[in-house]
């Protein structure tokens, strides 16, 4: 599975290409927002509020996607909002993945009481409606970017833990693990050196699919006012603010909605392809 083989397989899949291409484009655009000739996302000009998006050559330089309800540039807010959304999503996935993989390996490798406690914990959490859990924790911790990441990671660690545990159970009996044990390698060494590299692939697939889910959840929390705090933009928040103007200024809600949809779609396409690619049965 060299890098060249990977990219060749990606190029052969239409869905995979679209997904990867869009994700790359969004990440690049959002990351490059400070370099682009757009105004600050919090800079407002009340007298230029509710300007519609335009295709006319003269006006397109100013506010191509129009302005929002207090005269801020929509394009700039979409880009900076995307920066925040993607960064929060990535951070939550990494944090959730780290905790989930760690506990999954521990549960699978140690077995016994450790396994039982951890897996019951997972069961309890999965029995809870995710949104409710996120709402409760977000409301208890108070809204801030750091807390948002914690909340999102908390809702996602269980998925990694389950899959990684199953994988570890299988790996534990394999010869290379047995031989490492025979030469008295410490459990820590076996877990990090022998098992971890072999569970990373499925974890990566979960992570991609989780990213899409976490982005939606972040938008939902921000929509409800428990996520990113104003005046800094976030797609969910913009959606909420544009809701009142849906009939008179559709673009305020439509563009962040479109951004959420396209991002989640492309991440999902990429995730699906990754899963198929790493699934030996489908190759």
């Amino acid at each position: 599975m060299g890098a060249r083989g990977f990219f060749r397989a990606l190029a052969a899949s239409k869905a995979g290409m679209i997904g990867a291409g869009l994700v790359a484009l969004f990440v690049l655009l959002c990351a490059a927002a400070p370099l682009l000739p757009v105004p600050e996302p919090t800079q407002s000009n009340l007298r230029a509020r509710l300007m519609p998006p335009t295709l006319s050559w003269d006006a397109i330089g100013a506010h191509p996607l129009g302005t929002d309800n207090i005269g801020r540039d929509m394009l700039s807010r979409i880009l900076y909002g995307g920066q925040l959304t993607l960064a929060i999503g990535a951070a939550a996935v990494v944090l959730g993945g780290f905790v989930g993989v760690l506990l999954g390996i521990l549960a699978g490798f140690r077995g016994g009481i450790t396994d039982r406690i951890l897996m019951r914990l997972v069961d309890i959490q999965l029995a809870f409606p995710l949104m409710l859990l996120a709402l409760i924790v977000a409301a208890a911790l108070g809204p801030s970017v750091r807390n948002l990441i914690i909340v999102l990671a908390l809702t996602s660690w269980t998925r990694y833990a389950r899959i990684v545990r199953g994988q570890t159970l299988a790996l534990r009996e394999r010869e290379f693990v047995q031989s490492a044990r025979a030469i008295a390698a410490s459990p820590w060494r076996i877990m990090t050196r022998h098992i971890l590299p072999n569970v990373m692939t499925p974890a990566l697939v979960v992570a991609t699919l989780e990213l899409a889910r976490v982005i939606i959840l972040e938008a939902a929390l921000s929509f409800l006012g428990l996520g990113v705090q104003p005046p800094w933009p976030s797609w969910g928040r913009m959606l909420a603010e544009g809701r009142t103007y849906m009939a008179s200024a559709w673009w305020i809600a439509a563009f962040p909605g479109l951004a959420i949809m396209l991002t989640v779609l492309s991440v999902n396409l990429l995730g699906d392809w990754l899963r198929d690619y790493f699934d030996p049965k489908l190759r």
């Binding site: 919090t42 800079q43 407002s44 009340l46 309800n69 207090i70 801020r72 809204p143 006012g225 705090q229 104003p230 005046p231 603010e241």
Partner: peptide, 23 residues
């Protein structure tokens, strides 16, 4: 209220006062 407070905050920022909004 969202429109008003965010517009006020943007204007305060222009004179160098940063505002942390807690809704």
């Amino acid at each position: 209220s969202q429109e008003v407070t965010q517009a006020v905050v943007a204007q305060l920022e222009e004179v160098g006062v940063r505002v942390r909004m807690n809704e």
